[in-house]
Design a protein around this nucleic acid. Structure first.
Lengths: 205, 205
DNA sequence: GTCTATACTGTGATAGAC
DNA sequence: GTCTATCACAGTATAGAC
């Protein structure tokens, strides 16, 4: 796709032990992430994004090749940031506390959530560049939810007799749907909607 | 917005008791609906849509003013078709049977569901032409779900002690999320995911 | 209802600066 | 070699004249 083959530096430069391109690219991704999270992603053009983060649209094109590749890179960066934290939280606190916590965190990065929702809808087309990425990420998340769900059942914190595959996808779908509703109306409490659903799964309700 | 002021015919034409513009517009909407439902809505340009339904892109421009207005008109038409049927079904069979039935019907009009998902994500921006429409429709649907939910509680078919506003939005959000998941993977059974959720609401589970 | 003019978008190829 | 800037092009939507 983007063909970013990890270049091996021929010799260690005087003050640059890193590959300059990678560093620049990472800076741009972080800058774009910050702009989206803060000011929002309002269907910005690649030129507008460049202006917001203080660079040129040609620079963005050089480092990412296309607009979609840049947007996808921001979502990949998000996964790099949040993935480990989420997995640790899952291990430590369990599914029933992790999911609402994730929703509370998502409420702090509105523009990134909007980007996720927009790209997700566009990438429904199988030939879309980000289609594979969205699909892989979803399956990975659903897989981890499902595994955790089965652990909760074993621990007696979730009723038995459920179809873990169905419930895992229900949770993932509910997250997406509630995020969209929240994007339309700030007053929608994302965490509560997930908490109430998870409450239905607890024994003796 | 679209400024489609209902023109009053000066005299009743020989064989047209209707306003020609309105009829032509309705034909175009139905044709677009059929194309989307059948061949899908793959980010078609306004010129491609025109070709598919056998007209010119300038004709579409004239009748709808913009591409977004045409897409919105298709969704409005969908509401005109399905709204009465859905309300009747709700009255007759109740919420627990209506929602899965709606999902089964949606599975027959993939391109329209894709259009709904795409436009919904784009129209998150408050200045988007379709923003108000999506919002109004969602609130209307959530309102009817909520009313029906309270009726089901009274009838003892749904457990008491739930927050109807929360649950209604959970159902609406789950529908949206599951539809998106289904667009990515045909094998996702939308009706089952909704049925299983509604099962959690029944007494004595 | 049709046609023309204009502006903006993402993209490709190319040339220049460090 | 690595990075940035300039130019040209095709697709789209809009505005307005006829």
């Amino acid at each position: 796709m983007t063909e970013t083959t990890a270049r091996q530096p021929a010799r260690s430069g005087r003050r640059a032990p890193y590959v300059n391109g990678e560093r620049k690219r990472a800076e741009l991704v972080d800058a774009a992430f910050a702009v989206f999270a803060d000011k929002g992603f309002q269907g910005l053009s690649i030129r507008q994004i460049a202006e917001e983060i203080g660079t040129s649209h040609t620079a963005l094109r050089h480092h990412f090749g296309s607009k979609d590749a840049l947007l996808e890179a921001v979502l990949v960066r998000r996964e790099e940031r949040e993935g480990p934290w989420r997995r640790e939280l899952l291990q430590d606190k369990g599914l029933l506390e992790t999911v609402p916590e994730v929703m509370r965190n998502n409420a702090l990065i509105r523009g990134v959530i909007q980007l996720d929702a927009t790209l997700r809808a566009e990438a429904v087309r199988p030939d879309h560049p980000a289609h594979g990425f969205i699909r892989r990420r979803d399956e990975e998340i659903i897989g981890s939810i499902r595994a955790e769900l089965e652990r909760e059942v074993s621990a007696g914190r979730v009723v038995a007799g459920l179809n873990p595959g169905i419930v895992a996808r229900q949770i993932a779908s509910l997250i997406e749907g509630v995020q969209l509703a929240w994007l339309y109306d700030d007053s929608v409490d994302m965490a509560s909607h997930l908490e109430e659903f998870l409450r239905l799964l607890r024994p003796g309700s």
